[in-house]
Each structure stands twice: as C-alpha cells, then as structure tokens.
C-alpha cells in the first residue's frame, strides 16, 4: 500500500484573457501516496477546488503535469487511455446541486457502472444494493429521487456514486461543509470507515481546519494559488512555520470558552490581493505581520521535506519561517 499514487508538478490553471490572466493555480506541486489522505486547505479563492477540478479534467491545465501511478494523465487523451474515471473520482460540496433531480438514487449510483463498466441492469441492481449498504443507506430507497433525501443522505448518495467504479483515489471537495454539525459527523465517520475498508486515498479539500486535522495524514496550506506550507498534520498543526498558517490556525474559533479567551489571535489586515495581478515577491507580503524588504522583491520557493513528520522541518515557502 505504499508508493506514489498521484504526482502533481508545476500545475498552472488560468482563467480569463491571455493578456490579463487570472492565475487561479500557480506552479503547484505535491504528491500523494497510496492509502494516504492529504488535506488541501486555504480560504476562498486560493485555488484549492480548481486544483481538484484540474486533476479530473474539469478545468483546463495551462502548464504542468499530472501523473497517476507513474503514467501521465495531463491531457484528455491520456486520461481516457489510463481509464482515469475508474481510478479517480470526485465528491462535490453541494449535495443539492451535484445530483440530477430527475434521476433516482438507483440511476445516480449506477450511472458510472452503466457507462464505464457496461454492466447489465440486473448486475447493477446487485451493485447498487451493495453500495447503498456500504454508505449506510437503506437499499429500499433506491427508487427515490434526490429531493426525497435529507442533505446528509444526499451526500451519501454522492459518495456511493463516486465509489461505484471502485476507485483508488477520491477527491473530496468540501464534502461536509453544507451539512449541519450533527450530520457532518455522520458523514466524516463514514468517510473514515470507507477509507479503512477499501484502502482509499483522499485528496480532501476543506476550509475547516478541524475537519482536516481529524481526517487527514498530511496537510497542504494554499494561499493565492500556491502551497505555502505542507507536511504531516501533526507537524503543521503543532508547529506551523508560515506566518499565514499561523494566522489561519489562530483564527479558528475553539469550542471551549477558557481556551478561546487564552487564544492569541494573529489578526491579519485586509484581504488577499487579486490573483489577476502579476505576482512580484511573496503573495502574502501585503498582509504579512513579519514582512521584510526581501519579501516584496523575491518570491520564496517551497523548501523542506513535504512528508516530514517531525515538527519544524516540514516544507514551507517563506524567507523567514518560524
């Protein structure tokens, strides 16, 4: 179960005109081992969802390469040749918008089996029952439509659908952020169990750091289209090295009044700069409480060991890390 499953190298995704491009993802590199769960965190607009969409071919790649088990899946042709949909699937945030309201649970869950695996209907019946049981839904509900399910149940259908082709890697794009907390825990427990049972790898995209800490082995922090810090979750959460990660972690409200009062907040001023500007220097320089002259002139690179488990030695993109 070890070895490299996915490798992303120098990924760039641009939107808008060539003259004034919006750099949604800018020279992003990371890898993911078999059976590993990597959390991709950052605030809205940092490019975390776009990264996932680029991996499965939903966003156009401007530059860079994506490799799945040693073979390139950067272009549509390569993705088809490598049967990428059978190996990589995605679960979306909005369980209302991502399921076709005119399809029954049976059709939704087995559509991948019909298209990619070309299974006959009676075979799909058996598979659908198995999948429903796996995600904790009553198979008697297979004839129901999405509106007849609650938000949490709908997300279970989205997960069943993603698992239909027995993928190795599942990209989870904010899979629980639209759900109420009591329901959120049900889905998080389900994801943890499925990962263990099926040896899945997750690329888990979330803005909720506590959720990532709970479900992931490693975490990568993104800011304005780049990874600014990456390492084992224990290393990053216990000893963040990038000033942005420190601010982000200190801003998370802790559900304990005493700790909340003792919490030292690093308040950032302003908002992230617009990604349609030519980047000069460190992207975080405009809001960084520790900014130096060099940060405004030069762009730091991600240095250190991205998989380091010891605190203080994991990779960070900062000239003056802590």
């Amino acid at each position: 179960m070890s070895g490299k499953l996915l490798q992303v190298d120098g990924l760039q995704v641009r939107f808008g005109s060539a003259k004034r491009p919006l750099r949604a993802v800018d020279s992003l590199s990371f890898d993911l081992q078999h059976g590993e769960s990597l959390g991709l965190v950052g605030e809205s607009g940092c490019g975390k969802s776009t990264t996932a969409r680029a991996i499965v071919g939903l966003a156009k790649i401007h530059a860079g390469s994506i490799t799945l088990e040693g073979r390139s899946v950067t272009t549509a042709k390569e993705r088809a040749r490598e049967r990428m949909p059978q190996r990589v699937q995605m679960v979306f945030q909005d369980p209302y918008g991502s399921l076709n309201p005119r399809m029954t649970a049976f059709d939704l869950v087995t559509e991948p089996l019909r298209i990619a695996a070309k299974l006959a209907k009676h075979e799909r019946r058996i598979e659908a029952t198995r999948l429903m049981l796996q995600v904790g839904l009553d198979p008697r509900f297979l004839n129901r439509y999405p509106h007849e399910f609650s938000g949490g149940q709908r997300q279970r259908i989205g997960i069943a659908r993603a698992l239909a082709l027995d993928p190795k890697l599942v990209l989870l794009d904010e899979p629980v952020s639209a759900l109420d907390v009591s329901i959120q825990a049900q889905v998080l427990n389900l994801l943890a169990r499925l990962r263990e049972e099926r040896g899945l790898s997750y690329l888990f995209i979330a803005h909720d750091l506590a959720v990532v800490r709970h479900l992931c082995d490693r975490v990568a922090v993104m800011y304005l289209g780049r990874i600014v810090e990456v390492g084992a979750k224990r290393a990053v959460f216990a000893a963040p090295r990038h000033p942005y990660t420190r601010a982000l972690l200190s801003a998370v409200p802790i559900p304990d009044p005493r700790q909340a009062r003792a919490q030292r907040r690093v308040l950032l001023s302003g908002d992230p700069p617009s990604p349609d500007r030519e980047p000069i220097g460190c992207a975080f320089a405009t809001r960084c409480p520790k900014v130096q002259e060099r940060c405004r002139r030069e762009q730091p690179s991600l240095d250190g060991d991205a998989s380091a488990t010891a605190t203080g030695s994991h990779a960070v993109s900062c000239f003056y890390p802590d």
Partner: peptide
C-alpha cells in the same frame, strides 16, 4: 453536538455523530 465536532486543539478518536434527523 459537542461530541460530534472535530477539534483543532486536540485529537478525537472517533466523532460521536447524533443519529437521525
């Protein structure tokens, strides 16, 4: 509710989800 939320300040072995709706 308190047992069902993942925590940033400490490890939680398994979240205690509230069953049902």
């Amino acid at each position: 509710l308190l047992a069902s939320i993942p925590r940033l300040d400490r490890d939680v072995e398994s979240l205690r989800a509230i069953p049902g709706a």
